[in-house]
Design a protein around this nucleic acid. Structure first.
Lengths: 159, 159
DNA sequence: TCGCGCATGCAAAAATCTTGCACGCATCGG
DNA sequence: CCGATGCGTGCAAGATTTTTGCATGCGCGA
């Protein structure tokens, strides 16, 4: 969270590297950016502490764990009642199958990325998450027929 | 890719752990699942080799690198010409600002998650990516006013 | 029953990470 | 102008972690 430090080019370079592969040893990263292993180490710990690096995680293949169906669900709530929105958000955060959820502006209020075992589970989940309470007015599901690209790899430019 | 092995419960448990935090030492994971460090190690390398673990990456905070604006773009191509689709997909894969892109079924063909510095860059990018060539018929942009939940954390259940 | 494949634990060896220390460099105030 | 101070660095020792060889145990099929 705390971006006390403005991030210099070396920081950005390191971020670009570790967001591709977080397992590379410090001396390798060091070679690449022209820094000693310990300097790299200290920068990384600072980036972690300040929140520039949120986490270091393994990316699991959905098929490998039986998550065969990914779908995008657009949701519109019935009103702008903050309570309804808060409840909806909380529900999204709590539900494991909700991989991502963005509040969006336009004719829809939320975009939800749902990962489920199959169509049945998806439907069951939708029925549970997107109706009645939470003040959902309507929702529309777009099943994915395949991820063209998926990841959290941000574009990082110097400067 | 190769899911030669069916993944037992320990594998799933390990996946669930490392997808939360890929930096925990083997002996810690071992304690948690009841396995020696080397056994954990061998399972993890197998999971990597078979593709169940796609990558281990650092999750970078978008704001930290000047990516202030995330938006969802729904895209419909003009026709089902495989060439057009292939070209479009290639373009999506190539573009750094395209974080995610899913082929979807319904009134839209693709859902694209665009990460940009600001509205100007977003617009510039859209103009470049979603018109003329690639056979894009129309597209609609939904700027995100905040991520309720974002990550690649899959639900992993035993069995 | 025997043999084989496979996963495990253990322990040694290798690699990596961590940390204390001294130095260089820039900024700031006297 | 000059010394104090803060900050980041490299180096090297020490701690931790990862990797690997080896022997064992278990399940399954011949």
């Amino acid at each position: 969270m705390r971006d006390r430090h403005p991030l210099d080019d070396l920081d950005r370079l390191l971020l670009a590297l570790v967001q591709q592969d977080a397992r590379r040893p410090l001396h390798e990263l060091g070679d690449e950016v022209g820094l000693s292993p310990s300097a790299v180490q200290r920068r990384l710990t600072r980036l972690r502490r300040t929140g520039a690096i949120r986490a270091e995680v393994a990316v699991v293949a959905p098929e490998a764990v039986g998550a065969e169906l990914t779908s995008l669900v657009l949701v519109a709530l019935a009103d702008d009642d903050p309570e309804h929105h808060a409840a909806f958000r909380a529900r999204m955060r709590a539900e494991a199958c909700v991989q991502q959820c963005y509040a969006i502006v336009g004719q829809w209020d939320y975009a939800v990325l749902l990962v489920t075992r199959d169509i049945a589970e998806n439907r069951e989940l939708s029925r549970r998450l997107f109706v009645s309470d939470f003040g959902v007015r309507r929702y529309e599901t777009f099943p994915s027929s395949g991820a063209v690209k998926s990841g959290l790899t941000l574009p990082i430019e110097p400067g």
